[in-house]
């Protein structure tokens, strides 16, 4: 699958409170509603600026903080196609795979705001079209590839009724 979009750049340690504030996530399960507030405390107009397919590009420790799965879901429902970061916090990374949001660990210092990017998930390559460079991607653990191939953990369980990594 080839993802295409424009880079929206953020710094290091972007926590899940910034991704979706606690004041919104406790009151609804409507992810389309939560999506309107994604990244609001860092950029109040973020949701208005983005278009379908655009990408969040960040530094180290993206998604640190709480275990809220509303964080990857709010990003996914805002129609962001994937998140690229130098590194991810553990719980966010699991939650993203479980909910089917592509997360790509790579050297994001080679990406500037508004660069046009293409991400080939199969080959594991990020193409920075603006800078005409290729950026290699850290491969996913096998277990996560199996969950992603099934379409996330919900579909993995629907298919197997249990964990099945054979």
């Amino acid at each position: 699958m080839l993802l295409k979009g424009k880079a929206f750049k953020f710094g290091n340690d972007i926590n899940t409170d910034y991704i979706i504030s606690g004041k919104y996530k406790f009151k609804t399960l409507d992810m389309n509603e939560l999506a309107k507030h994604v990244m609001e405390d860092l950029d109040p107009n973020f949701y208005e600026k983005i278009h379908e397919g655009d990408m969040i590009v960040a530094g180290t420790n993206f998604g640190c903080g709480s275990s809220r799965e509303q964080a990857p879901l709010a990003i996914k429902y805002a129609k962001i196609s994937c998140v690229l970061a130098s590194s991810f916090a553990r719980i966010f990374y699991r939650n993203a795979i479980n909910t089917g949001l592509p997360v790509i660990e790579c050297d994001t210092s080679k990406i500037d705001a508004e660069d046009l990017l293409e991400v080939d998930l199969q080959k594991g390559i990020v193409y920075n079209k603006t800078k005409s460079i290729e950026i290699p991607v850290t491969p996913l653990p096998d277990v996560m590839i199996k969950i992603l191939k099934d379409g996330g953990l919900i579909d993995h369980f629907k298919k197997h009724g249990d964990f099945n990594f054979e």
Binding site: E69, I91, R94, L153, I154
Partner: peptide
């Protein structure tokens, strides 16, 4: 350790979870 909601659901059904 902390997990997300879908991992919790899988744990509630199976009593198991995968870990590194």
């Amino acid at each position: 350790t902390g997990v997300g909601s879908t991992d919790l659901a899988a744990a509630m059904i199976s009593g198991k979870l995968w870990f590194k």
